[in-house]
Design a protein around this nucleic acid. Structure first.
Lengths: 214, 214
DNA sequence: TTACTTTCATAGCGTTCGATATGCAGCCAT
DNA sequence: ATGGCTGCATATCGAACGCTATGAAAGTAA
């Protein structure tokens, strides 16, 4: 059930070895999906970028859907590590700050496509891609749940004011992160995104302020 | 140069009249693009939804690109009206509040697709759709510029603290709006989006508070 | 009625889509 | 060396893509 079972068909013992670097090919596939989206990336686009023929792609990765899912998981990184980073932060504020600045930076890389693969690649699609859209949504929601739990923990620990709406606060952070992807795609520079991140963090409820909600 | 020249080929005086309601067909096209995106909506999808054959679609709307642009402009509404609404608001805060709550509501309609057409339909695409992506980005940036100008006006009028970063503040609002589209597509309910809107507005710098930035 | 204009429905254009059948090439185990 | 795998390159497959040629149908203008 684990998605990272070290590839699609790797436990072979005999036969001709792969003539290409599977990991490097996956990396190129990820970049291509990142730039052009899931449905709007063709197999030819992928084989060209990966330097591999179509039959090799299919034997190594299954089909387009599985290749995308593997690329998406590689993009998202290990969810356990993310969870530990959020939970291990000094406070929810620090986790949110790290998430926002990391997003602003990652969405404006020089050598990578602009924006967020998870935010753009399956933002729309025909009915046939519903399963892929759900998988990407799950990745998002797992991160949101983790941040929300961290906020709730801070509320319980009195680090955040008791009236804090954890769902809304986590939602704002997630919305800004996803929205920054759109802005980055439109050409907004890294500095501007970082300023948006800073401005967003000014909304963070502080214990030193009186909680101003019912 | 005006996009709304009342259709693609409407100034006819003789000949067989249109057997379908051009406006209603455009509305259906808009809903279809809204649901499935630009490139990921096929001509068959459109003709089915619009109740029109392919040749009729092409004579009435030009081609897929022009049909989408016309649908996108219908979705976005008259930019003049939007500009007047932002400029005519009591303060930038009210404009931002209206934009956020209107987005939260519009993205979770019962009879419309979830999310925002402008945010999702061209979030990704092959190189051939670059022109359409740019057109949609322009719509976004026009709104952002309008909000930013309204914020700057409030700063000049001392309604907002002098140190206010208008670019970042407008950017946050735009990012949250675009991000809410992603959340809405993932299934987030209207109430949750409205809570995010409220939480976002708490970040709004108030003249009554001491400005806490350099 | 007749000429003219424009839309309609049918059918299909050439291209690209995701995915494969086929046969040769390369590597391991024996 | 040889048999058994497995990946490689070539050449497609049927379906769907965006789009259009064609001629009949339905109006207006004379």
């Amino acid at each position: 059930m684990e998605s990272t079972e070290a590839g699609f068909r790797s436990r072979r013992k005999t036969g001709r070895p792969l003539s290409f670097d599977r990991d490097a090919a996956l990396q190129q596939a990820m970049l291509t999906f990142w730039r052009h989206g899931y449905e709007t990336t063709s197999i030819v686009d992928l084989t060209t970028a990966m330097g591999v023929t179509a039959p090799s792609l299919y034997t190594a990765f299954g089909d387009k859907k599985r290749l995308f899912l593997e690329a998406a998981h590689r993009y998202a990184g290990d969810p356990e590590i993310i969870a530990r980073a959020i939970e291990g932060a000094p406070a929810a504020y620090d986790a949110a700050r790290e998430m926002l600045t990391a997003a602003a930076t990652a969405y404006t890389g020089d050598t990578t496509p602009k924006g967020c693969l998870l935010a753009s690649a399956t933002a729309s699609g025909s009915a046939s891609s519903a399963e892929v859209q759900r998988a990407v949504a799950n990745i998002r929601q797992r991160i949101e749940a983790c941040l929300r739990a961290r906020i709730e923990r801070d509320v319980s620990a009195n680090v955040l004011p008791p009236g804090t709406n954890a769902v809304a606060l986590a939602g704002v952070i997630m919305a800004v992160i996803q929205g920054m992807s759109v802005l980055a795609r439109d050409g907004t520079a890294r500095a501007a995104l970082l300023a948006i991140a800073e401005q967003t963090l000014r909304a963070w409820p502080a214990k030193s302020h009186a909680p101003h909600q019912a």
